[in-house]
Design a protein around this nucleic acid. Structure first.
Length: 507
DNA sequence: TTAGGGTTAG
């Protein structure tokens, strides 16, 4: 039985204000403080004379947790601030958009607090176009000419970013500059983010360069934008620039840069970053250390990866998953499964990512029964829905071992949309076991997803060649040529007697 | 004019 952590014995207005200050963070974190909040509300209601300020603060307190939000909604709303408080609370709750909008529409009066809350609510809840329309409506609304400020403008920018609408974003940018509301750091961050989300990384960089203040977060965000768009070298260059500017990286910066080192398999840079991390407090987070494990395993150095893991003081789910997946990807499935056992014995609960590692280990080790057992346990034992990646792994497992009947059955009753890894796994299995019918099926699906990927054509041609279907090989070659997918020198398709040799690469 | 609204890194 939990002891009540908060006792209500307050009578004066100032005692009530103090009590609200103390209770607010507690209630936010834990619904068990709901009775204390209700008691404060009762005490405030009996106070004479009544105070609008106090009742709005009570409203704020009660609306800060879903458990007490209904209490807040039943209280009187003396002024626009009361409405705004409830509006923001509804906008924060996962399915609260409709009720937030209904409240907004019923409000007797609206100010810039109300508009920024409703615009950002629509942007956050997947309705960015509606958010932009509301922003425009605000500008037209009689009597609200001065309503837009840096708060409403940044909500508008979030909406433009979410809608991937660079036209609206640029308009807002001009508007912000014209109105002179570009003075604070948040609006600059929102501007840079808007351009980046609209695919204009260079514009985001221009905004970044003009920012009046840049902190570690804005630097890290800008570096990440380069990585996310595949512009690794610019990202690394900006990271070095950041270090030279004297900005100290934190664990987010390190994790992002290491992830990029893994992606671009830049082991040398990764080791340098590791060296720097070792000297910094930020390097001590298990978050950054997981990124190190991931980087080393991506670069094929499981020895160092495991050293980093063993030295992590408190490895978490992500650290364990990085090790398990690392072993699986580096052709050491037994170690992967061994670490998975240790992980389970340490009392952790795997998540969907952990299972991708475990299943791919089973596939690499050819452990069909174990893999199927794990696959079924994901849903039956752990209550986790199967993802497209789980299916891809299990199809890999089945088709590598030639169990095409089961693989086909599974694909036909799959509960998610099959991804390219699933079809590529099936195609790979068909190559080993020379299954023409399913190879065609897989290749067709891959052509739909990635019409330009030469690997699919080459694999399919290889499969045809392996069973002597040379006309089909020629057919594939011609399709590739006609689509201009890759320049294939005729010498790459050498016909020697009755054998066609298909190279998997060309210069 | 106290209370309520806005951003960026995994």
């Amino acid at each position: 039985m939990k002891r009540p952590s908060f006792s209500v014995s307050v009578t004066t207005a100032s005692q009530l204000h103090d009590a609200i200050d103390r209770l607010l963070p507690l209630l936010r974190a834990d619904a068990s403080h709901a009775p204390a909040a209700r008691a404060l509300a009762a005490a405030a209601a009996s106070l004479r004379p009544p105070s609008t300020l106090l009742s709005n603060r009570i409203l704020h307190l009660l609306s800060s947790h879903p458990a007490t939000l209904p209490d807040a909604l039943s209280l009187p709303r003396p002024d626009v601030c009361s409405y705004n408080t409830l509006l923001a609370a509804l906008a924060r709750s996962p399915r609260g958009l409709a009720s937030a909008r209904a409240l907004f529409d019923r409000m007797p009066r609206r100010d810039h607090f109300s508009w920024s809350a409703i615009v950002s609510a629509h942007a956050r809840h997947g309705q960015p176009r509606a958010a932009l329309a509301l922003y425009k409506r605000m500008l037209r609304e009689p009597g609200s000419a001065g309503a837009d400020n840096e708060f409403t403008a940044s909500s508008g920018l979030v909406a433009a970013a979410a809608a991937r609408c660079v036209r609206a974003g640029r308009e807002l940018h001009c508007h912000v500059v014209r109105r002179g509301i570009d003075a604070d750091a948040i609006i600059w961050s929102a501007l840079a983010d808007m351009y980046a989300k609209c695919g204009r990384v260079d514009d985001a960089r221009s905004v970044f360069d003009e920012m009046p203040v840049r902190d570690v977060v804005s630097w890290t965000a800008m570096v990440e934008r380069y990585f996310d768009t595949g512009r690794g070298s610019e990202g690394f260059r900006l990271f070095v620039h950041m270090l030279r500017s004297g900005v100290r990286p934190n664990e987010f910066t390190y994790a992002g840069v290491l992830r990029a080192c893994a992606e671009f398999t830049s082991e040398k840079l990764g080791r340098q970053v590791h060296g720097r991390m070792a000297k910094s407090r930020a390097g001590n987070s298990c978050f950054a250390e997981s990124a190190l494990v991931h980087m080393y395993s991506k670069c094929g150095d499981m020895g160092t990866a495991i050293c980093v893991f063993e030295a992590t003081p408190k490895p978490d789910l992500v650290s364990w998953t990085a090790v398990i997946s690392g072993f699986a990807q580096n052709g050491q499935p037994e170690e992967a499964l061994c670490y998975f056992d240790m992980f389970l014995r340490s009392g952790f609960r795997p998540d969907h990512v952990t299972f991708v590692g475990v299943l791919s280990a089973c596939a690499h080790a050819g452990l069909v029964d174990k893999g199927l057992e794990v696959f079924h346990s994901i849903k039956d034992e752990y209550g986790i829905e199967h993802t497209a990646d789980h299916y891809a792994c299990v199809i890999d497992l089945l088709s590598r071992s030639g169990q095409f009947e089961l693989a086909e059955q599974m694909i036909n009753k799959i509960s998610v949309k099959p991804n390219k890894f699933l079809w590529a796994s099936l195609l790979g299995g068909c190559r080993i076991h020379k299954n023409i019918r399913l190879a065609r099926w897989a290749a067709e699906a891959l052509f739909e997803i990635e019409p330009e990927n030469p690997a699919t054509y080459v694999t399919l041609a290889n499969i045809y060649a392996s069973v002597g279907l040379f006309d089909e090989v020629e057919n594939v070659r011609q399709i590739m040529g006609s689509k201009g997918i890759a320049k294939i020198p005729a010498s790459s398709w050498i016909e020697a007697g009755k054998r066609v040799h298909v190279f998997s690469g060309w210069g």
